[in-house]
Structures are given as structure tokens and as C-alpha cells.
């Protein structure tokens, strides 16, 4: 096994080691997060990509320990500034949430409480974590709205969420998250529900705020464009596991894992004309969680899979270019074609 921190150029603010979170349904255990490893460098952005159901949201909720029944964190360590979060009491956790680690969610339309004003919802953070008076907190809330680029903030604090557009609401969510100067911001698909022109505004805002406030960001998304544009490091997830973890350039320019390659190849591009060629596809679909493959989770869809892949689960290992990869091809045990070139068929 390798250490996630090995590939970082900076100090890690957060290190997730072998995290396991499961949902215990009536019939079976859904291993939503099944041994995840990554680290987030200080002041930089880590992207987590992967298709729907791969465990991105559950990973991020696990970091804040917000998993609700029937879910449970059943193993691993989450080191935040060197301390294991999983060992902390609920009261200590509350001091971290919204204060040292904040989170914004995918659905700006439903993530704000409809019966309280925007100002009340931002103020709450100040009142909990900084013991501010109501009046003072409201004043700071207006300043936060100004910071996230909402015009006439003094009027806006008195408005209810339904009076704002989707883009505005996401700005309000960011204002709530940043109220107490968190060291780590977890953004779970912050722009997926927004139009591209609004997405561009929000991403720009986040980048700008990161430059000014120096926080670290975990950017969860399934949009490889967003990753390329905003992230410094990337963890690619598949079925509850990290299959590739590397610097962003290495993932896009020199992907190693067959799933990462397949993902990049199946992406139709708006900036390049692929002509009339067919898109490369990853055959088949994600197996259902009650039918987990025994070996490599990707084996049933992988064009290179061998007997070994179907039988045994590979570990995350360092490849020659530094990417950390969970694939037999890059190990000494590999029993297939020794010359195999995973990214030979790359189209872009």
C-alpha cells in the first residue's frame, strides 16, 4: 500500500485512510464507501470524480460525520490537521462543522430552509461559532453576501430563499459555508444544478475566494471539465473505491487506470471536432451494490480484465509516473499482456 500523502507537494490538511461507510438495508449491506484513501493539500483543491452512485457524496458526508441511519462509518481514519475526526465526541464535531470544515451541496433550490430569511440562516453560523449577538451577526451576514457578489446585500438579508434565483441561492450557500473562515470547504457538485453561464460565475467566485482566504477545497463533481479547470489533485472513484489518485495534469495527460481512460474517451467534447468517429464506450453498466464483483470492481466492464482481475482485488499502488492506481496491470503479479497500453486508443 502507498500513502496518499506521498504525491502531495504541500502539507496535507486532511488525510482519509481506508474509510469505509456502509448502509445496512433490510436485505443487504451497501458498501457505499469501501476503503477510500486520499489527502487534501493545504490551500489547494482536490477533485473527486466518478459516476453516479460511486460514493462521492457519502465520502464527503462521512468527513463531517453527517451520515444518517441506516448508514454507518465502519472503519478507517480521517485525519484533520493530524487528529482523527472519527475519535471525536459529538460536541467536538459540532465545533468543527461549519467552523473549520464547511460544506455546500448540490441542490441550491432545496438546501436552504424556506421559512427563514437568508440573513437568519447566515447569522446562525456566527451565533453558534463566534458567540455574536443577533444584531452583529446580521451585520456580518450582509458583509458575507457582499463578499459572494450579491448586489444590495442589506435588502437581500431580509429575503427568503424562494425570492432568489438558483445562482443567488448557491452564492448564499457559499456565504454560509465561508462565514467562519473554514480551513476546508467541501463542495458537493456545487454547480451541477446550474446553467453553464451561472456555473462559470460560481466557479470563478470560488477560485477568487480561495485565493483571498487561502482555504483548501474538496470539489466533488462528475464533470471532467470542472475538474480540469478548478482542481490541483484528483481522486477518481468507482464503486466506493478510489481507482486513480494523482495530480490533475497527470490524470488528464497520462491516465493509467482503464476506467479513467474509458471515462476520458467517452466524453464528447465541445471544443474539439471528433468528426464522424464513434465515441469510445465503457461496455456494460455499473453492477448493483448487492452484486459486488469479487475481484477488481471494474473487471466486468474492463477491456483488459484477466482471471486475476476477476478473482482478486488490487491495492492502490504507485505507478512509474507517480499516479496512485488500483489496477493489476501496474503490478508484478499482472498475468496478461506485458506490453498492454491502456491509453493506446485515446482519441483526445
Amino acid at each position: 500500500m502507498v500513502k496518499a500523502t506521498d504525491i502531495l507537494d504541500q502539507e496535507p490538511i486532511l488525510e482519509v485512510k481506508d474509510l469505509q461507510t456502509s448502509f445496512f438495508t433490510d436485505k443487504f449491506e451497501v458498501k457505499a464507501v469501501d476503503g477510500v484513501n486520499f489527502a487534501v493539500p493545504k490551500g489547494k483543491t482536490l477533485g473527486i470524480v466518478g459516476e453516479s452512485g460511486s460514493g462521492k457524496s457519502i465520502t464527503s458526508l462521512s468527513i463531517l460525520r453527517l451520515i444518517q441511519n441506516p448508514g454507518k462509518i465502519i472503519g478507517g481514519e480521517i485525519l484533520f490537521k493530524g487528529e482523527n475526526i472519527l475519535k471525536k465526541s459529538e460536541a467536538e464535531m459540532r465545533k468543527i462543522r461549519g467552523n473549520e470544515i464547511s460544506m455546500i451541496f448540490q441542490e441550491p433550490m432545496t438546501s436552504l430552509n424556506p421559512v427563514y430569511t437568508v440573513g437568519q440562516q447566515i447569522s446562525e453560523s456566527f451565533m453558534i461559532h463566534q458567540n455574536m449577538s443577533k444584531k452583529e451577526a446580521m451585520k456580518r451576514s450582509a458583509e458575507m453576501l457582499e463578499l459572494v457578489g450579491i448586489p444590495s446585500p442589506k435588502q437581500r438579508v431580509k429575503q427568503y430563499p424562494h425570492e432568489l434565483s438558483g445562482g443567488m441561492r448557491q452564492r448564499v450557500m457559499i456565504a454560509i459555508a465561508l462565514a467562519c473562515d473554514p480551513e476546508l470547504l467541501i463542495a458537493d457538485e456545487p454547480t451541477t444544478a446550474l446553467d453553464v453561464t451561472i456555473q462559470a460565475q460560481i466557479l470563478e467566485l470560488m477560485k477568487d475566494l480561495q485565493d483571498r482566504l487561502g482555504m483548501s477545497i474538496i470539489m466533488i463533481t462528475h464533470d471532467l471539465g470542472v475538474v480540469a479547470e478548478t482542481c490541483d489533485y484528483v481522486a477518481v472513484m468507482y464503486m466506493g473505491k478510489v481507482v486513480e489518485y494523482a495530480k490533475v495534469r497527470d490524470v488528464f495527460k497520462n491516465p493509467k487506470h482503464p476506467y479513467t481512460v474509458g471515462l476520458l474517451n467517452s466524453l464528447p467534447r465541445h471544443d474539439i471536432d471528433l468528426g464522424d468517429v464513434e465515441l469510445q464506450v465503457i461496455e456494460g453498466s455499473v453492477p448493483s451494490p448487492d452484486n459486488l464483483p469479487k475481484g477488481c470492481r471494474f473487471a466486468p466492464r474492463c477491456p483488459f480484465a484477466t482471471e486475476l482481475c476477476h478473482e482478486k482485488l488490487p491495492d492502490l499502488e504507485q505507478s512509474d509516473n507517480g499516479n496512485q492506481i488500483r489496477c493489476w496491470i501496474y503490478t508484478d503479479e499482472w498475468d496478461g499482456d506485458q506490453e498492454v497500453d491502456v491509453s493506446a486508443k485515446r482519441t483526445t
Partner: peptide, 22 residues
Amino acid sequence: LLSAIPVPDPDAQSERVLLEGD
């Protein structure tokens, strides 16, 4: 619209026209 779409290439130099407002 075209310039707002993130390009899946970390080396891409995009000159973005940021539209304001909704």
C-alpha cells in the same frame, strides 16, 4: 455560452466571457 463550458484539459487556455446576472 461556449466560453463558459469548462474544457476537460488542464492545459487549455480559455478566455472566458463571464456573463453577469441571471
